[in-house]
Design a protein around this nucleic acid. Structure first.
Lengths: 126, 126
DNA sequence: TATTGCCTTGACGTTGGTGTCACGGCATAA
DNA sequence: TTATGCCGTGACACCAACGTCAAGGCAATA
């Protein structure tokens, strides 16, 4: 499978696949012309990468998951290294959630205040 | 008040204040040497900006709040334009929160799965 | 043979809020 | 006079995951 086909099948771009390879996540052999050749298994790898990116992982964090898949596991997250990253990320996401809830409440309060203010002014003038 | 003093009092840097000015948020007059002179009121403006930045607002979004303060209001969020931005940002934050909750659940599920997997394997081998 | 289409590498652009450096002016103190 | 310290502008560096353009090679097709 050439890079264009893998990109299309994985729903991404050739540029992206080269980027992943550059960062040691995706592997390819080369044909006589120097074109990248991909194993069918790479499709799953790319799928795993994109799924994890969607969850907010950085490429560096994704490496253990890919290694886990390559080791023959049915899923990328069942290996110890992956679990460690999962734990860290879960804690991180929880932190962001807490912080974001605080922000949300602040926004909500300010909005309520502003509306209250406007209501009072309206009662005075109307 | 010169830029260094305002920066210290506002808990930020001179570089940052120049950046805010460049983006039309902070105002300064100039003395004979060309140095920026700040009104005491600018301290509150800078405080407002930093508070909003902490809440995830972009500098462009903050402009109406500053204008509101300059118009003599006790708070930057009581003007219609500010309220509009507040509403938009609140919706945006709610969206991010929803998305982040989904991500969190996914992480949690994967983690639980991995631990389950390990437990089973341990029961088999131990 | 010229075109089309896929591939290659390399390198710069994007977003936003700064840090940091370069280079220079002005003023006060030693 | 020189050192110190504040200020000025301008411009590059950073992070991250790419998009996009340039310039070229190789192969099949018309």
């Amino acid at each position: 499978m050439l890079i264009g086909e893998l990109a299309a099948r994985a729903g991404t771009s050739a540029r992206t696949l080269r980027y992943y390879e550059q960062h040691g996540l995706v592997r390819a052999s080369r044909d006589a012309r120097g074109y990248r050749c991909y194993d069918d298994a790479e499709l799953r790898v790319v799928g795993e990468i994109r799924s994890l990116l969607d969850s907010g992982f950085a490429l560096d964090d994704i490496r253990p998951f890919v290694a886990c898949l390559r080791a023959g596991n049915e899923a990328g997250h069942v290996c110890p290294d992956s679990v460690a990253v999962l734990r860290r990320k879960l804690a991180e996401v929880d932190g962001v959630l807490d912080q974001l809830h605080v922000v949300r409440d602040r926004l909500h309060t300010q909005l309520a205040e502003a509306i209250e203010e406007r209501t009072i002014r309206c009662q005075m003038t109307c």
